[in-house]
Amino acid sequence: MSASFASALGAAHDAAAAQHYPQGALYVVATPIGNLADITLRALHVLQLADIVACEDTRHTQALLRAYGIDKGGANLLALHQHNEAQAAQQVVAQLQQGRRIAYVSDAGTPGVSDPGARLVDAVQNEGLRCIPLPGASSVTTALSVAGAVAASTEAQGFVFHGFLPTRAGERTNAIQHLAREPRCVVLLEAPHRIQELATALAVLGERRVTLARELTKQFEEVSSHPASELPAWLAGSPQRAKGEFVVLLHPMAAQADAAFGQGEQVLALLLAELPTKAAVRLAAEITGAPRNPLYEAALRMKNG
């Protein structure tokens, strides 16, 4: 155990032990995405308490547990990854039905988002068994929190999680053409050996702002934003910039939406002189690409004015 975590287990017990942890339940536990200090006290307590820890990679998880001073023998670890998730899920269900507490962790972050875990949870819930989430680190929300990429406007509010794009060039190009029409922030993930290819493919988005977040929570963490057209040159500027796992955020199309709405109002004013409100709004939206609901509100203001 690292000396820096010597007091963590005691603190976890003091903070979390008084809570109820039912038997026969699956505990879905988020683990750090890089910095070991990002583990939660409740996660430490549950990992100690669990009869079995199901995990994406038993060697990786064994090392993680030992760093915190948690000793689980090989018999208490169950491999559950993308290649055996359906089969291993049935083993988990059988153990839960015998009243055991099972914690599931992926290699890093929150299971079931981009990592395995979704099919496991589905299998457990289909048997009427309980799944208990233990929130914690996630590369997606970590990157979003420092990118300023989630718009507050009505039309582009929130974000879309897409994950990894297809690796084949043609399929990836088609996916990007589809995402180019998405007005909200889009969250992508990418590996270091493919980030340059992704940046080149995204360059067709021109001035749309893109944030690259790599090595989040680690020593060489870097978050940098650029117009999409400049990404390939920026990455090529230093070999260090292409290292580490990436979260890639396409910012919302705020500027484009504002321009379209301005044109929409101009066209709408002309159409209202000749057509009923609904027909004028529909045509103005079709002609300019501006969102229909704000145009309808603008039409009402024009008529009332």
Rank of each mutant, 00 (worst) to 15 (best):
A169K: 14
A3I: 07
R119T: 10
C55E: 11
R181Y: 06
V210D: 02
E155A: 07
E286G: 09
G262A: 09
V29D: 01
R119K: 13
G289S: 06
S145L: 11
V187H: 06
G264Y: 01
V204A: 14
A54G: 14
F246I: 01
A88P: 03
L275Y: 07
Q62C: 11
H45F: 13
A260P: 06
L179I: 04
V53G: 04
N84F: 02
N84K: 14
Q62D: 14
P22N: 03
Q240C: 05
H81N: 11
L120I: 05
P183F: 05
A143F: 09
E265W: 02
A254G: 10
L283N: 08
A180L: 02
S225K: 00
E222P: 05
S224H: 12
M253Q: 13
G128H: 05
E127F: 07
L235Y: 05
G74K: 12
Q219L: 15
H226G: 03
V150L: 06
F164H: 10
P294D: 00
K278P: 09
A3W: 06
G117W: 00
T58G: 09
S7F: 07
A147M: 03
L205T: 01
G289E: 03
A43S: 05
S229K: 11
G117F: 00
A242Q: 15
T211E: 04
T277Q: 14
N304R: 14
G117M: 00
A191I: 02
A16H: 02
R66A: 15
P294T: 00
E297A: 15
T217Q: 06
I33D: 04
I39K: 01
G237P: 10
F220C: 09
H83K: 14
A30S: 15
P183K: 01
L64N: 00
S153E: 04
Q240W: 05
A298Q: 14
K303Q: 15
H226E: 10
V187Q: 05
Q263E: 12
I287M: 15
P111T: 06
G10P: 07
E197F: 08
A152N: 10
E171P: 02
Q125I: 14
G158F: 08
P135N: 00
